[in-house]
Design a protein around this nucleic acid. Structure first.
Lengths: 406, 406
DNA sequence: CCGGATTTGTCAGGTTTGTTGACAAACGTA
DNA sequence: TACGTTTGTCAACAAACCTGACAAATCCGG
């Protein structure tokens, strides 16, 4: 039940009905392909005569293609429809502190090529390096299809209206206009988004089905920082200034370990990758400097997980304690938003078998009802593809989204 | 940008365009009344010929009425349109531990009559008592118009699909089918909702403008418990099982004061009414029993506020400390959802002048950016009308909401 | 007092859709 | 080969937006 904003509404025109139905057809094909016109009509509960012009328009637009003839027990064989995906390309870029990844992807999410480069310290250099590599990538695969846009995933806050990267704490960048710079350099539309939101989009649009059938979930990433991408009622929740999802800074304790945000006792200060390593080392994250000291050990969460699997009791215990804190923090999301599912990403998700009981215990400790305590928590083992798929989704998803009216 | 759920979509029919535009007209009249057809056409950027049939349909439905002739500098005078409100009634019911309030309201939110009764311990008795009083109320005001429904606000979790009250901790009720019982007894449609959500609806639909022009805000109530009603993108966020908004149980400290939910250190345990009184009395809420002891003193937050105003330093200090905790907890909502505004309701909002600086300090302490730290916090001094207006909105709002398609 | 200018509300005709029902094409089977 | 079944298309109708014209109502200057 949405209120119509009398200052900012979208009037329905003569073509609105068709726009809506065309988009429904498109999404049905995407979901059930290969599928015939007659099948579409049955799923939409309309006569076949309505579907035909919608499909033809989508074919003309280049969104759908006709494929082979299908099988049928009796009667005329249907011509099957597919989403046109294999000759439409998107460049996905994932900027992280450790490295920047590029992927050339088709519209089904299939990867055609991947590249890595060290992330430069200066954002201008990044734009330069990306431009060169994207051009080379597109030249090398020009036969594969046309590229329709670039999706750029960044570890920090974004202003969608202007496309500026407002603040990326791990990179130390502030107020950089990445979108405009890359758009003019490459000559393709650029979509920029925060990493956790992109991961949520990846689940929503290119996922393997763990959030299928749900219209609300939260994707929580544990990495250098902790953040969430939120989907409620089929909508991505971005908040008033695109700052929603920073659950990493809900307090677990007002005077707990120091957090890089400047506060103390944030969930992130208990569960981020440096926090896990510090816990394993028996060090306290009492000051900001202690983060640098932990980093200097060059020990990673992946190392800690490997040692735990090798029988290191201290590593195992550090992970289990972390698991409980993860569950405790998840309870804030569950109590506050009541999503149908929680998806947990990041390196620590690779140790799910080790931490699962503690996560669920922590979650149950602070949730209010049995129903919310039973919210399924699904690990997504660390997979660089997720963020890249999210980056591709930035280009692809808008073409499939519902038109907004009312 | 919403994804169309291929398993649960709403196809557009021949009348969808008109349905959307009719609802837009209705909302424009509601916002700008009195307003002429020609003005509506200008605001919608369509020809006047499109507006006329939409308006006539709404008049026929009984949603609009024509009023007096308007003034005009030159040319023919317009006939002004109004939302038909003064002869359409709704019964608003607010169930609280201390007492249950009834209001007979017209569709503009104007109160025709108010009644109070002590809340019975048994839900069946409540239905009985409500039935008698609602019938009497409607008989007494039968000349004022027809009643179109009952809005029921309860202090607890609700299952909207079945209309059952799942759990109301302060009342000690579990799994009560209030809606069905009241519907059959009175013979009018009953809409049931959690109190914080109803308060958010009151702001959204019948508010005095503090959230006008924003499509996202959180209404946070501080009373026996602490809860929030969330509105994001014009939508009320209810979550997967109508349990969203329970921010009262985000932890401020994992081993803080005991909370009635069974956990420790919840925001609620620092900021609820009993917590404020306990703070003033210098008592710790270490166990569940301590809540009963605090209640036995019969001291209320209103008393504490009065004493603070009278110069009681301990009272003043208790309120200020509470203010900081309120701000600290609000930061979780701001970081997690980034609403455009926060509205604070409950008794403590009546002491806003005393606590404001501490609330803002607490909020700024834990928010990530200047932008989010500057989220406006608007007090709504305790006003029993808010919840009752929210109850009325449960009946009224669905008639004005946007049709859902796509 | 009258004609022109202006604004409002309505209406007829054109266009674009959904909707309905009919029909040819394609296919398997008796 | 005849028949039933299924698919895809098309024509006729209805419902909505859209356009442009027009009558009604009002003010104002002469």
């Amino acid at each position: 039940m949405r209120k119509i904003d009398p200052r900012n509404f979208q009037r329905a025109t003569r073509t609105t009905t068709k726009d809506i139905n065309r988009q429904i057809v498109l999404n049905l094909v995407r979901e059930y392909q290969p599928i015939s016109r007659a099948d579409l009509a049955r799923r939409m509960e309309v006569a076949r005569g309505i579907v035909t012009p919608l499909v033809n328009e989508l074919i003309e637009q280049g969104m759908l293609v006709e494929g082979a003839m299908g099988a049928s027990a009796r009667g005329r064989k249907p011509t099957l429809l597919h989403v046109r995906a294999h000759d439409r390309l998107a460049v996905a870029v994932d900027v992280r502190l450790s490295e920047t990844q590029l992927m050339l992807s088709d519209f089904s999410g299939r990867s055609l090529a991947t590249e890595f480069l060290p992330t430069p310290e200066d954002p201008d250099e990044l734009v330069l390096a990306l431009t060169v590599r994207i051009r080379r990538l597109l030249d090398a695969h020009s036969a594969a299809g046309d590229c329709e846009g670039i999706g750029l995933v960044v570890p920090g806050m974004v202003d969608r209206a202007t496309g500026r990267l407002v603040h990326a704490p791990t990179l130390g960048w502030r107020d950089v206009d990445l979108r405009a710079a890359l758009e003019t350099a490459v000559g393709l539309p650029v979509h920029i988004e925060r990493d956790a939101v992109a991961c949520a989009l990846a689940q929503m649009w290119m996922g393997q089905g763990v959030v299928q059938g749900t219209d609300s979930f939260a994707y929580v990433t544990f990495s250098d920082g902790v953040g969430a991408g939120l989907v409620m009622g089929g909508h991505v929740v971005r908040g008033h200034r695109d700052a929603a999802g920073e659950f990493g800074h809900v307090p677990l304790s007002l005077d707990g370990p120091a957090c890089l945000c400047g506060s103390r006792g944030c969930w992130e200060a208990y569960t981020s990758n440096p926090a896990v390593v510090a816990r394993y080392l028996g060090r306290e994250l009492a000051t900001r400097e202690s983060y640098a000291q932990v980093r200097e050990t060059r020990l990673t969460v992946t190392d800690v997980i490997a040692r735990a699997r090798a029988g290191d009791a201290a590593a195992r215990s550090a992970l289990e304690v972390t698991g409980r804190y993860i569950g405790l923090g998840l309870s804030a999301i569950v109590n506050g938003l009541n999503p149908a599912r929680l998806v947990v990403g990041g390196e620590i998700a690779g140790a799910w078998d080790l931490i699962r009981p503690m996560v669920l215990q922590g979650l149950a400790e602070r949730t209010l009802t049995q129903g919310t305590a039973a919210t399924p928590v699904i690990p997504e083992p660390h997979d660089p593809q997720t963020r890249l798929r999210g980056a591709a989704a930035l280009v692809i998803a808008p073409l499939f989204a519902a038109p907004n009216v009312g």
